[in-house]
Amino acid sequence: MRLLVTGAVVLVLCAGMLAASVGLEYGVPAFSDMDDYFIQHGQEQTGGNNIVTDIVFDFRGFDTLGEATVLFTAVLGIGLAFRKRKEDEEYDYE
């Protein structure tokens, strides 16, 4: 019974993904005003050629700063978890 349900779910997922991928055309994303603005004015406003980098480092610089901070904090946490303990330091996890 469980196997049947699993198989049915997998089949439905497969069919859905294939149907969605067949119906769409490659390289034709949905229209939006924001894209047009970036593509037309990105080069003159930031001075860079690659529009993705222009957005990441100039229009959306704060997001990149936040991403860098998140990475820094993650490394800080891992360093805290795996740091060398002193000889007489007791474990108290519970």
Partner: peptide, 14 residues
């Protein structure tokens, strides 16, 4: 085609 010596602070931030 692009020039490596452009874009101001973007390469430095990269």
């Amino acid at each position: 085609p692009g020039d490596l010596n452009t874009a101001g602070v973007i390469p430095i931030m990269n």
